[in-house]
Design a protein around this nucleic acid. Structure first.
Lengths: 360, 360
DNA sequence: CACCCAAATGTGAGCGTTAACATTCACCAG
DNA sequence: CTGGTGAATGTTAACGCTCACATTTGGGTG
């Protein structure tokens, strides 16, 4: 067993008990309450006394006991974060972003990852957080059932969910990357390039992010006065992107908007194997800008999400809710279109318009 | 503000205080201590009494106050996890794996991600954990300086680091994926395919995982009686893999072992752009088996890590340390070689041996 | 049938902090 | 000089739990 190398002549053999407020108080020649006041920087403490106490704290290496504090105040400077037990790029990046933002805001984070979206699991997670006296909860919710499960548990603290809900439910705060906008940006880019038949490979049906992206695709097509495109459904995996690619290869559209980069990767492979050249024969846009997207073959045009901004947005919502304000708006973080080599002007040779267009 | 819909006729307007042990005790007609005994399943409680108490707990919706418990026991059923603030596939997957294993082992996790590997940051993180009375700490350490920083803080609880240290420092427990073995598996596969000049693109110099993989590459080359191969250094990014590929393209080896899949991706692109065909002209192996690796072009042969097993290994170490045993061995989790299409028998046309070899 | 022992249960004292209230002290108005 | 006032400090009581110890209970023994 490792023992703290402690200079104090403590009772032999025992781990020296960490000093408490009383010890500090004694050392500073004040009462424990004054120590408490210094710690919580209460105004009415003489500067001189404050200094004396601070010196004593320093000297003894005193650290306030959070359990005792939490016991009496029912506060813990901690927020709980619930995420799905997935190693996917999106959720994990969001988690890191939220953790960073929470720390910046002065909170610590307690983490629970859910093996599934059942209400039971969610309830257990949230109740655990409540037991810990967390001051707020962040739920990273990929699908509607996670949000629903979270809403069923009644929390005594504010909750913000990171989810692309079409509309904000009462009682919780919601923030998200603006997936719809991202999709529109992607499709708009494709339309601008002259593509008319724009297919979409969607993520899993229960994914909110995916629905929002699909909605964006439709809206932009609509706005451009283009007919509906072909819709295929995948599950975020390259595997399903590949399958979609095989299907698409039989009746190739002008362009494909893939719901995420991984599916775009699968798509790219299927296309290559089918002898279809990107971007000459068909343009491809992804979503996420995962590390590596810039080195797909061809380098992938995609939509980048700002996870750091998302984390901040999340904490802003939470802290203002904690401050008693009622931030009502659903905050959306704008994504960014990254144009690379997988998209190009519609080719005149394979396009469905005649050669004369090229001259215009 | 949302208010818990509570059936009890509580004092008007106030959030009803959650029931305590005394409330349960009264309801069950026993003393608070008996309730405590039931909670901690102490042996000497009559089954009938136990049942009565449990019924009362159920009825009142009683939940044990963790702060109070932590205050007296100085235990919290929580472990602290320190990780690097990175969205890379490796670290995040490890994090998810550890969280899952911790929950399985009955612990909750408190998370701190480090913006840098400074001792200051590490100290703050670990002291925060100590304040929270965590029972153990897991440090996911990509580089030696993180481990060193962690060692400098003197902890009163067991610590396990997940790091590919060449040898285990005293006082802490270490577990890791067996990167060295993984690299040897990869290189052995290459050697088995007849390749002799096997280059390596290493990860960043300060990465322990990278060093272990590089060491494995060297060892296996040695064991096969082959000359040292060409060594290039990247930083895990596809960008650097691409740069390495450009360099390698000028003097193409038989095969390349990339330190991770992302660099392999960059390498693949550089090779393709240089008119070099994989695996005909050169075989490529990656490391990680990131989602998508199976859909690189060509599908990437790589080494898969078992993050779930790693998490379990980590918790096994921690729980046995907690139980007072002294698990001394450094536990390594074996990885698995996944053979796909980026590796092939050494081509007779481009090989450095004459055609006659093919007939042997 | 008194006796003892172990099992089952109860009692009281903290754990380290903050909250509420009490006290002291210096200073100024009347 | 006295009373009042507010700032600075001290005292006491929770917070909800577990621990150590005290007490009760229910059988076997001799």
């Amino acid at each position: 067993m490792r023992r703290a190398p402690n200079a104090l002549p403590a009772a032999p053999g025992r781990t020296p008990k960490p000093p408490g407020m009383y010890d500090v108080a004694r050392a500073a020649g004040v009462s424990h309450q004054t120590v408490s006041r210094v710690l919580n920087d209460h105004p009415s403490v003489r500067p001189e006394t404050r200094l004396r106490v601070q010196t004593a704290i320093e000297a003894l290496g005193y650290r306030r006991n959070t359990a005792a504090r939490a016991l009496v105040t029912r506060r813990s400077e901690t927020i709980g974060v619930v995420t799905a037990r997935s190693a996917l790029y999106g959720p994990t990046s969001v988690l890191i972003g939220v953790e960073a933002a929470a720390r910046e805001a002065g909170y610590f984070v307690s983490l629970v990852s859910l093996a599934d979206a059942s209400e039971k699991q969610m309830r257990a997670a949230l109740e655990h957080f409540l037991d810990q006296s967390v001051e707020g909860v962040v739920v990273i919710a990929p699908s509607a059932d996670v949000v629903e499960a979270a809403l069923k548990v009644d929390l005594r603290v504010p909750m913000v969910t990171i989810s692309a809900l079409a509309q904000q439910p009462a009682g919780i705060y919601v923030t998200s990357v603006d997936h719809l906008l991202g999709a529109r940006l992607a499709v708009r880019h494709l339309v601008g390039l002259g593509h008319r038949r724009i297919a979409h490979i969607a993520g899993p049906a229960d994914s909110l992010d995916s629905s929002a992206r699909t909605r964006g695709w439709r809206q932009e097509l609509d706005a451009a006065g283009l007919p509906d495109g072909r819709l295929l459904v995948g599950d975020w995996s390259a595997e399903t992107g590949y399958a979609a690619g095989l299907t698409l290869a039989r009746d190739i559209p002008d362009a494909v908007f893939a719901g995420n980069d991984e599916m775009a990767l699968g798509l790219l492979l299927a296309l290559a194997e089918s002898g279809i050249t990107v971007p000459d024969d068909v343009s491809v846009v992804g979503f996420d800008d995962i590390p590596g997207a810039a080195f797909f073959s061809p380098r992938l045009t995609t939509v980048r999400q700002d996870f750091h901004a998302l984390g901040s947005s999340c904490m802003t919502l939470l802290t203002s809710a904690l401050a008693g304000q009622n931030p009502s708006a659903q905050v959306l973080v704008p994504p960014q279109l990254i144009i690379r080599a997988s998209t190009a002007q519609r080719s005149v040779t394979t396009g469905h318009t005649v050669r004369i267009d090229a001259g215009l």
